[in-house]
């Protein structure tokens, strides 16, 4: 197999376009600190941050923290997003349920879910449960609302066509309404994954005894500026990986919705 020079050039230029600006900013950062333009007290040289990042990784501190954080985030996300899909489908499909629950959802939705943390601390005490509960409730609403939108956004002609071809009500639901609302459900899942990451880090900073959020607040408290920036770098990279993972799952799950 040979790779044509055109493809190689296209790949090289896409790398250049994507990585180039980032490298430029990092270089500017390094130079402005090294030259004394910005005080290293607030902004350590990027090379120091990278050294610290490497040490945090090899010492096992950062991997251990991410393991804890990922576990909390994943459990909360699965509980929140999973129940939102089930609940959304139920109230979206059965009109009486919808009539009853929709005003409640609309009333609760604007409440900043992070405020619920106080209740979770009262109910669950310390440890993982209040963190997981915060992630779960924050992941719940974006998925719920997008699921409901997805159910409503199905082209009515597809439902008519299915009925005309002999589908009964149950089949219309499982073979048309459900697959048709999947793209919107995935939109909700993508939004929720971003919210889940924000919430897990924020709650860990506030009440955590472990995890990346805790590591961040610890570094702040003891003014370990290199560690602080190294943790931010790590969280940023972790965030990118999370979004890419959701995109990848959607790519595999919805082959018909690719590149439309």
């Amino acid at each position: 197999m040979t790779i044509s020079s055109g493809k190689l050039r296209a790949f090289a230029s896409s790398v250049l376009y994507n990585v180039g600006p980032i490298v430029a900013v990092l270089l500017l950062w390094e130079l402005s600190v090294r030259s004394g333009l910005i005080r290293a007290f607030f902004l350590p040289p990027v090379s120091d941050v990278l050294v610290q990042l490497w040490e945090s990784i090899t010492s096992g501190q950062l991997p251990a923290a991410f393991l804890v954080t990922t576990k909390r985030m994943l459990i909360g996300y699965i509980i929140g997003a999973g129940s939102a899909i089930v609940f959304g489908l139920l109230i979206g499909i059965f009109r009486p349920l919808r009539n009853f629950f929709y005003p409640i959802v609309a009333a609760v939705y604007p409440l900043p879910k992070i405020a619920m943390l106080s209740i979770f601390i009262v109910v669950f005490g310390v440890g993982d449960p209040p963190i997981i509960a915060s992630v779960a409730i924050s992941s719940f609403f974006p998925v719920l609302l997008n699921t409901l939108t997805g159910l409503r956004s199905i082209d009515p002609i597809l439902i008519k066509a299915a009925e005309d071809l002999g589908a009964n009500r149950f089949q219309v639901t499982t073979k048309v309404v459900l697959p048709g609302s999947l793209p919107m459900i995935f939109t909700g899942l993508r939004q929720s994954s971003a919210v889940a990451l924000i919430v897990v880090v924020a709650v860990e900073m506030y009440i955590g005894q472990s995890g990346v959020g805790y590591l961040l607040s610890w570094a702040t408290e003891f003014f370990k500026i290199n560690l602080l920036y190294a943790n931010l770098f790590a969280i940023g990279i972790f965030g990118i990986l999370v979004f890419r993972l959701v995109d990848f799952i959607e790519y595999i799950a919805l082959p018909w919705a690719r590149e439309r």
């Binding site: 066509a161 071809l165 089949q171 073979k175």
Partner: peptide
């Protein structure tokens, strides 16, 4: 009766063969 629609009304998530087989599947 079976309809043929102006806007085709094909199921976007189904491949061609599964669109064609839809009625029989139901």
């Amino acid at each position: 009766t079976t309809m043929v629609w102006q806007r085709y009304a094909l199921f976007p998530w189904r491949t061609i063969k599964h669109n064609v087989a839809f009625g029989c599947e139901m």
